[in-house]
Design a protein around this nucleic acid. Structure first.
Lengths: 120, 120
DNA sequence: TCGGAATATTCTTGTCAAGGAATACTTAAT
DNA sequence: ATTAAGTATTCCTTGACAAGAATATTCCGA
């Protein structure tokens, strides 16, 4: 996974921008600033970050910028999450039980080690 | 969405930890440190962050900690992404074509013209 | 009780990101 | 050419965060 996508989304204002565009379709930088109560310069800066991360498209129209969502990074994030769904179905319920039992009983470390990787 | 989840994942080492656990099932802090070539203190610190974000479960067993994945935050992230899929199906394919055309790329003219607002 | 293994905590330092304020740039209209 | 709107950039300050190093803590076994 791309940490650029994640850190771009990790900032609350930027996350709000993404959600605003998701719901509203397309906006101008000034419109975004108004709707989210941000100053224009910080809005521009946040959009620069989002644009660098490939999360938005910026179309210059006259002296405005039309901001739209760009699906790809979010789709990649989705694909990454997909790699977890398999695990959740196969393994997790059983592993959970196993750990519960480990904690309930007094056990020695050798029994624990046989779980995943043999060592020592 | 919870920005805590996102910023926890936005750090490369922490993302690697999550992927390691996803693939390997369960690990000890020391094992994680060895596998990812991290020092023990930073591994502990990263795991504290992951634990605070609810991304991992920490089971004390003797003087070790058994680390396992905790599905919930990733499932919430997944649910958040779900809110975008609807948009992508309804709206985006059409909008994408529109933007392609704005940029001067060759597209199927029939598809473009039958869009709603042919502005140009 | 002591030693050693596994993990936690503290302190320091460098880096980087975010907001505020001021200013520069670009475009359209007149 | 001038003006005003929209946006970009710069400078500054502040706070958060991550790594490194050193030390503290907890637990087990002998």
């Amino acid at each position: 996974m791309n940490t650029a996508t994640l850190s771009a989304l990790a900032e609350p204002n930027r996350l709000h921008i993404i959600e605003l565009i998701r719901d509203g379709g397309s906006f101008t930088i000034g419109e975004i600033a108004v709707r989210l109560n941000l100053n224009q310069p910080q809005t521009s800066k946040h959009l620069r970050v989002l644009s660098d991360a490939g999360l938005v498209d910026v179309q210059p129209v006259a002296n405005r910028r039309i901001i739209t969502l760009r699906p790809q990074p979010l789709q990649e994030l989705d694909a990454w999450l997909e790699t977890f769904r398999r695990i959740w179905e196969d393994r997790f319920d059983r592993l959970d039980d196993y750990l519960m039992e480990l904690q309930g009983k007094e056990q020695n470390p050798d029994d624990i080690n046989k779980g995943s990787g043999g060592e020592k």
